[in-house]
């Protein structure tokens, strides 16, 4: 069938991420125009290049500044705690679990986006797992007591404080020089994200316990979406289903390669090899992280999100990951 001629505007995710370079950007700038037989023309820009802050993206999408948008979902949690639901610290030790959690939570996110922000959810996908990068030796998770750790979210700060460390918030661009000068001992970011940003050149020890996955969303402005013809909606929905599969696949590859690249091993096609020392993650570390998640992170998030929200979480994500928010404590 031929699609109606349509011109769409996209604000893409952070420009230097590997999934943006390899999947998202080609998806918008090449595939969509080609597969629509040239009927769809796309203007594509990344939010960081446009000088937009992540936490503002949902409001810009709501205002109709772009037809389609993508960014980290946790950054929207200031406007509504619901958005953090499948990316809470410590609930998903591996990608299959993260996927189960997000599949279970997606309808809740979609409902909130539609009701509050005039935005349609078109998919959730992960970054490489967020792991620890340290200048000084660490043996296990308990070793972070007394250490200064750079974090990028409030729940991550809760975790570091519980471990007995001092959380520090520093802009991403300042992390490398700050690590170099020893402003903090450790920092947390994606296993491959840090590699391409040069963190592996200024830290020595990689502790590859993923604390969360920086889940990001794909979305459409609801008014724009409603104006599209049914064929166009169907075409785009099919494209997005395919896009999301590929985003989960490249995340798995990027996470694994992140660890191998940083420690100078193969395969390493997406990053650059570095000479970091791999610190083995033990079962007691996973147990401790899960305990912090259960006792601190979930309780505090439950308080922010409210009882109804927590109940819903227990019935969906909670079942998928085998955790539950103690409703009497919130």
């Amino acid at each position: 069938q031929t699609l109606p001629e349509t011109s769409i505007r996209v604000i893409g995710n952070f420009s230097s991420q590997v999934q943006v370079q390899k999947v998202e950007k080609p998806f918008w700038t090449q595939e969509i125009p080609a597969d629509s037989g040239g009927r769809i023309t796309v203007t594509y820009n990344n939010y960081d290049i446009m000088g937009i802050r992540e936490q503002q993206m949902i409001r810009l999408s709501e205002a109709g500044v772009a037809d389609f948008a993508s960014t980290d979902i946790v950054k929207l949690a200031g406007d509504d705690p619901v958005f953090e639901g499948c990316d809470l610290i410590g609930i998903a030790p591996d990608l299959p679990t993260a996927r189960k959690a997000c599949d279970a939570w997606a309808p809740v996110v979609a409902e909130a986006m539609e009701r509050k922000f005039q935005t349609k959810l078109l998919g959730l996908a992960p970054n490489p797992g967020l792991v620890f990068w340290c200048r000084s030796p660490v043996k296990n998770l308990a070793d972070f007591a007394g250490k200064k750790v750079r974090v990028n979210s409030r729940t991550m700060a809760d975790m570091v404080t519980t471990l007995g460390g001092t959380p520090i918030t520093t802009p991403f661009g300042e992390v490398v020089p700050s690590l170099q000068r020893g402003v903090f001992d450790c920092a947390i970011t994606g296993s491959l994200t840090g590699n391409t940003a040069g963190w592996s050149e200024v830290t020595k020890y990689l502790f590859p316990l993923p604390v969360n996955w920086s889940i990001y969303y794909q979305s459409a402005n609801l008014n724009s979406w409603k104006k599209y013809s049914p064929e166009l909606q169907k075409f785009l929905e099919a494209k997005f289903a395919d896009l999301n599969e590929r985003l989960w696949t490249i995340a798995a590859q990027a996470h694994a390669e992140g660890v191998s690249c940083n420690t100078g091993k193969d395969p390493c096609t997406l990053g650059k090899k570095a000479g970091m020392e791999l610190v083995a993650v033990g079962d007691e570390d996973r147990t401790l992280l899960r305990k912090i998640s259960q006792e601190v992170v979930l309780v505090q998030w439950g308080k922010r999100c409210g009882k109804a929200c927590a109940t819903k979480w227990n019935d969906t994500v909670g079942k998928a990951v085998g955790l539950s928010i103690p409703l009497d404590k919130i």
Binding site: Q55, R59, G78, D79, R154
Partner: peptide
Amino acid sequence: RSFALDSRSMTPLA
């Protein structure tokens, strides 16, 4: 919008 949503900053200060 911030008032209506009771928005908080996503930092330890909240």
